[in-house]
């Protein structure tokens, strides 16, 4: 530690003079490392009271404002490039038209004029429900399966090859089989989401179950934790952060493919609606639909990321 060094450089100049602020700062930093007990009594007599210099403070509000500002800059550049591209190719929807359409859609999002004419709010809701059903099913199946694979070498050997072959298959490849086998495209869509959302959940849960620290496993053995105690106090707390990451990845990919599934399957929803707008060659509405899909996806991801932070194992987890 070289805490006193600032003194030498500064004090060297006014060797004979009165020591001023900089040397005092170094004294404070050195003292901060000593145990706090007893410090006030010692300081009371001789030396001038030790006052730490005020640190430059950047308020949260200012920091948030700054990052919002930069976000605005990023969006502005993107919109500018988009407008430029639109001016080169008249077939592209312009930002202006898109936002006009977006505003109209959002002005009355929940109207319902029969099956072929609904507000975007209702369409997004229908799509969300479909995604949630498939994702929840994937969670119900994927978590236990992941725990099994992560804790049993036999289960790992039996299932890993299967998982590795099925995982890289495009989710849309499943849809024809499921649609044919299950008939109603609504059910087929949910099951396709299920198949897609399953893998990240299974693999992350398995990784978490396999990553229980050896020390904690030894503790469980030495103190003879029963199955339930082990699950509750050792396995589950270690798996939870991995599992939530898996759920977040699953949701992300499910939200990406649901648009395509609806286009293929013809069930009513925001993805299907984008296809309908395309067929009507109403491209500003397609672009507005893309913005809506993106924002909803962002919200979903943010919610799950918050959840992931809340269950993170170390510092800062709520007590």
């Amino acid at each position: 530690m070289s805490a006193p060094t600032p003194v030498t450089t500064d004090a060297g100049i006014d060797d004979a003079g009165v020591p001023d602020a900089p040397p005092e700062i170094s004294v404070v930093t050195a003292d901060a490392e000593a145990p706090p007990a007893g410090a006030p009594e010692v300081a009371a007599g001789a030396a001038p009271p030790l006052v730490a210099p005020a640190l430059p403070q950047i308020s949260r509000v200012r920091r948030a404002a700054a990052s919002l500002g930069w976000a605005a800059v990023g969006v502005a550049i993107f919109v500018a490039l988009w407008a430029l591209a639109g001016s080169r190719n008249p077939k592209l929807p312009t930002p202006g038209d898109t936002f006009t359409n977006l505003r109209e859609m959002l002005a009355d999002p929940f109207y319902d004029n029969g099956p072929d004419d609904k507000g975007v709010g209702l369409l997004v809701w229908a799509t969300l429900l479909r995604v949630f059903k498939g994702w929840a099913l994937a969670t119900l199946v994927g978590v236990p399966l992941g725990l099994l694979i992560g804790t049993s070498r036999r289960a790992w050997s039996a299932l890993n090859p299967l998982v590795q072959v099925l995982r890289p298959v495009s989710p849309l490849a499943w849809f024809p089989i499921l649609a044919f086998a299950l008939g109603a495209s609504e059910i087929a869509a949910v099951w396709t989401v299920f198949v897609i959302a399953l893998w990240p959940t299974v693999l992350n849960t398995a990784a978490g179950a396999a990553a229980v620290p050896v020390d904690q496993r030894d503790v469980a053995r030495v103190f003879r934790f029963g199955r339930f105690t082990y699950l509750r106090h050792v396995l589950f707390p270690n798996v939870l952060p991995y599992m939530v990451t898996g759920l977040r990845l699953s949701m992300g990919i499910a939200w990406i493919v649901i648009v395509a599934i609806e286009m293929l399957g013809g069930t009513s929803g925001i993805g299907r609606q984008i296809w309908t707008w395309y067929n009507a060659l109403d491209l500003p509405k397609v672009a507005a639909g893309i913005v809506i899909v993106g924002v909803v996806g962002l919200v979903l991801d943010t919610v799950l990321m918050r959840l992931a932070k809340a269950v993170a194992i170390d510092e800062g987890s709520p007590s």
Binding site: D215, V219, V222, V234, I313
Partner: peptide, 15 residues
């Protein structure tokens, strides 16, 4: 139960 153990790393359950 006749033997208990202290490990090198603190090995408390974090939750």
């Amino acid at each position: 139960p006749d033997r208990a153990m202290v490990f090198q790393h603190y090995s408390l359950l974090p939750r």
